[in-house]
Design a protein around this nucleic acid. Sequence first.
DNA 1: ATGAAAGCGCTAACAC
DNA 2: GTGTTAGCGCTTTCAT
Lengths: 329, 329
Amino acid sequence: MKRPGIKDLAKMLSLNPSTVSRALSDHPDIKQETKERVRAAAREFNYQPNLHARFFRKKTSGLIALILPEFNMFFVPGLMDGINESLVNSGFSLIVFFSDNQIEREKEIVNHCLSWVVDGVLISLAENTNTVDHLKSFKSAGIPLVMLDRVIFSPDFSSVTINDEHAAYEATKYLISNDKKNILGIFGNSNLEITKQRVHGFKSCLDNYNVPYSDYDLIFKDALSGNKNIESKLRNTPYNAIFIMSDELLMDTYPVLLKNRQYPGQVSIVSISDGKIPYQLYPKITHIRHSGYEIGVTAANTLIQNIKNDTYEEQNIKVSTALVELESV
Amino acid sequence: MKRPGIKDLAKMLSLNPSTVSRALSDHPDIKQETKERVRAAAREFNYQPNLHARFFRKKTSGLIALILPEFNMFFVPGLMDGINESLVNSGFSLIVFFSDNQIEREKEIVNHCLSWVVDGVLISLAENTNTVDHLKSFKSAGIPLVMLDRVIFSPDFSSVTINDEHAAYEATKYLISNDKKNILGIFGNSNLEITKQRVHGFKSCLDNYNVPYSDYDLIFKDALSGNKNIESKLRNTPYNAIFIMSDELLMDTYPVLLKNRQYPGQVSIVSISDGKIPYQLYPKITHIRHSGYEIGVTAANTLIQNIKNDTYEEQNIKVSTALVELESV
DNA sequence: ATGAAAGCGCTAACAC
DNA sequence: GTGTTAGCGCTTTCAT
């Protein structure tokens, strides 16, 4: 049998479609007995509302778009978990797009989201996105948007990130307080805001504690260079401690250290991490914990709030981080 | 200004809405000049079709549902990448649900998908799902479904997996061919079909080569036991080789081995892996490569085919795997 | 407490 | 080559 609509139920029960609709949405006007008859029939024929049609009337889609630049296995899972956690009880569904780190693709996706009439947008920006102009169409359509993780600060949109500079500062401080003065820093793509912030935190900590360093102590990994920089510098530069900016880089660096027999023992490591990988290596890695999960929950909650109160303030939220010190032997 | 609809464009151009609609979809009846006028106006006012309304007529939503049990960081990213790759040029959008490994949640999601009138479903089953009965509603609604990774073989639905038994067999064979006869096997939740298949491949290889083993050589990790079994058995059982069923378990086992100073040297390892982690450990891990990406692409392509030809055959597709031998020092 | 009827934005017969 | 019209499934005003 073809799937039943409200009309079908109405016919079966000799009721008007509008009555059935009201009964199903528990409208106070409808008497209990009718509600129960309707609900029974709905259950019997496994009636499922057609959400497109419903939206069509209500001018709201129940869709939240999540736009991601790529699939970072160390970060995205926690993030999506958190977003899901927040959305699942709010009745929204999640529609996911990947920009492949291309702003051009990002622009297409923006239009796609408008076509889907999404109720809100969560976005982590592409690497080569250096403006939020293409997001303004959301603003003019009255669609709330929250940036997360990879963001550009802008008065027009809210954001949820960690305090990158502070996290890097604290991580570096940990090394210094353990009397390590010969510190290498390993960073990702130097064009990203997130990298700049973390570099800044790293440097300003070294400055503050009068620990000398040269630019040669900073290693940047981008898509082109791969791990070559890391391998060669780790072999040829003297150091007794390493600051590692992310889980991904930690996983890249760790085997190099083992291979060079520099870890454990000769070298102290501190990283900024989502808090899984540091426990899966041996010895465990002391790290500044930042939770993708928490960013996800916070961003989604903020977004939902913005959707519900149609007037809202832009805000830049920093999710807290903390030093997790693990016995490094 | 409120976002323009087809009617608005029509009014501006003194055309009929249907003409505008046809012009935008490049209908052959419409003359070139009109098409260009319409397209110019559409661009000028950034007209974006309302997909809900369009669906409403066309009886097709352009949505593919992806239902995942959880977020396995070693597998899901590749999988989603592959799915996205396949969907991106086909005009479908991806709507994602998490069952949290609960069949009850899975049932709710099934209804949710019906409400969204999705055009097709990709699903990896929850741990405690032991029947596909709740998926039959897709079948009766004429919605194609493809199971992937965590599946139950059923004449009613297609599936895309690797040949788990074969992969485990080949991995084990590698150890035996390197003269390792004292092999431990590390496996996940023993109730999962995937685990059973891999156990079976493991055992039947040992049997075939007359390598003795007892059930005590098989270690199972489930949510409750955590890594305790692994740690204690690795300390207390004699062995010179380990078969590891998955990336997740590899990451769990690796630090234990390092801590016990059993690796490298004393122990050979082989794992079944998506092919990233084995390169991020030192020494690198020889493994049977199975690609989540490829499973994603294959499953999504199969699904799209099924959507397009409304008549189709159920099929159980096995994505190929291969031994990747890495210098283990 | 229920029914009648209109309309959301779009497309596809069917005119002309 | 373009216009007219009806209708997808649902909600909501207005009437009864």
